[in-house]
Design a protein around this nucleic acid. Sequence first.
DNA 1: TTAAACTTGTCAATAGATGACAAATCTAAC
DNA 2: GTTAGATTTGTCATCTATTGACAAGTTTAA
Lengths: 108, 108
Amino acid sequence: MKATFGEYIRQLRTDKGFTLTELAALLKLDSANLSKIENGKREFDEKRLDKLANAFDLDFEKLKIEYFGDQFAKKMYAYNCSTETLIVAEEKVNYLKSIKAKQAKLEL
Amino acid sequence: MKATFGEYIRQLRTDKGFTLTELAALLKLDSANLSKIENGKREFDEKRLDKLANAFDLDFEKLKIEYFGDQFAKKMYAYNCSTETLIVAEEKVNYLKSIKAKQAKLEL
DNA sequence: TTAAACTTGTCAATAGATGACAAATCTAAC
DNA sequence: GTTAGATTTGTCATCTATTGACAAGTTTAA
């Protein structure tokens, strides 16, 4: 659960005994590029999250957590951000939601 | 502190009595584009964070928290991610750091 | 040593972000 | 209500980064 997203995909794939070529076909990408993704040399495109969930019958909500958690972690690591960034992020999500709620009310 | 990053810039700017054109010059961008940034219609490029910190004499670490917190919040809001994403992100940052620490040890 | 699996390098094609500028709108002072 | 400065909006060419694709290399296990 602490692995990078690439390591996570590799885990899923090898557990099911798929080759890179087989999984790549399910995800509609090149096996060479899937290799790079698993080794952290390319990004996994969020547009393919649903295909990945289908391929391994995963809960989509949990997959999003894994995926975006990984994205955020990489950014924070790269820019040496303090963990307070995450607290601020949570506040800001709530702020965005409150804005939306306010707008929905006005449209009544 | 809960505002979006665009609102935050606008706050800083108007507090100091700068016009869009003036601040834009300091940040080396077009005033029209700065307007879009303040109104959440364009992204603020992370490469300009240092210029922004200088323009308002801000603590760079705090500015990063504000900036990346905003980025993460937007993503989470857009993809409707649960707040658990942030907990996972924190675990993963620590994982990345532990990897690095391990590698540093091997290189001795 | 052979075949399949995997890795790596490269590059053209594509998509997305950015800079630039014109035009419209807003605001406040006169 | 006119004017000037400030801001907003729309558009588009250009730049940049990402992606797909494929060739060539290495590793692995039989």
